[in-house]
Design a protein around this nucleic acid. Structure first.
Lengths: 174, 174
DNA sequence: CTACAAGTGTAGCACTCGCTACACTCGACT
DNA sequence: AGTCGAGTGTAGCGAGTGCTACACTTGTAG
């Protein structure tokens, strides 16, 4: 039982029960160990969470690659709608739940959350750049515009105002 | 000491220390009472949080009215940029911190967070409708587009990617 | 064979959590 | 004068938190 074998088990527990509610003993029993061993391997809880977030960022990047179509979208708006639709599927709900916990952690100046959060955004941004139409005049700027609208729409969906975010998606030019 | 006199004191403690970290005893001592009395007045913690969120939504609506300019913006994009700039000021940081805790709570299916969250979004949406240019062809749709971009940009700023969200604001048409 | 370090189980510490039991004061109403 | 209910202080319960002390088993290197 090393960090590497532990992390997938810990990650799946967090995906199921949320990050905010993750405490050592439940985490440990989900991974078939004891809190004692978790601390032995990771040092303290903060380091464990940091390792876990890094691992989750990798999982998210993988999930993107497998769930999303390979071909480019015909327009910026179509690209945004595709990401929005796919991340709205039930299998992505755990990711989003953890994601908002991460955002809240960042906003509360929790240092361990900051780098993984930025990394996840960078992964998603790069994915969008690669799926914009070839004809896009400025893929960097386009991807940023798409990202902003997607994230806004996701948030609005999370708080029960999906119509607002979807109108935002529809208004994306290009 | 009634609910009404308690709520402002509780709210200011939450604004300072965050919602996720709010527990009865610190909350009580910030309000000059005991956890015992908080439960006497509100029944249980869930009801207390619900009342608190409703109160915070009112505070937020007030803050909008006092901090934001009265006149309409010259364009959708200008409107979005104004809201983004103002909510980026230090005095709004506590609101945003609490806001992301609320979003995370909604995403974790915490029922008490859901209605206040929607209410806050409705207040902001109504404010945006009233500050779009008179010439806007469709203020409802315009406000939704503005909201979506604003919220996306705010989230990206919270996780350390302000440039992405600002490019998204700049790409807003109209 | 021995010594040492990695790994692990048991037990517990000091603390915080939401919540409750019980006794008490005090003002209002009969 | 007596009763009752709203409000309040003290004290504590049982559960959970991150983390640690200590003893123990291994596998490995000298």
């Amino acid at each position: 039982m090393s960090r590497e074998t532990l992390l997938p088990l810990l990650a799946s527990h967090v995906m199921e029960h949320g990050l905010a509610a993750a405490s050592l003993r439940p985490l440990a029993s989900a991974a078939g160990t004891s809190d004692r061993m978790l601390l032995y391997h990771f040092g303290n809880k903060e380091a464990l969470v940091a390792a876990l977030l890094e691992y989750l960022a990798g999982m998210f990047a993988n999930a993107l690659d497998t769930a999303f179509p390979q071909e480019r979208a015909p327009s910026r708006r179509a690209c945004a709608k595709t990401v929005y639709e796919i991340t709205g599927r039930p299998e992505f709900a755990p990711f989003l739940r953890v994601w908002w916990d991460i955002v809240a952690g960042c906003s509360n100046n929790n240092a361990a959350y900051f780098d993984p959060a930025g990394g996840i955004m960078d992964v998603l941004l790069a994915w969008v750049v690669d799926h914009l139409p070839e004809s896009d005049p400025d893929p960097q700027a386009g991807a940023r515009a798409v990202m902003t609208v997607i994230e806004g729409a996701q948030m609005l969906r999370s708080v029960g105002r999906p119509d607002v975010g979807e109108a935002g998606l529809a208004a994306l030019e290009g």
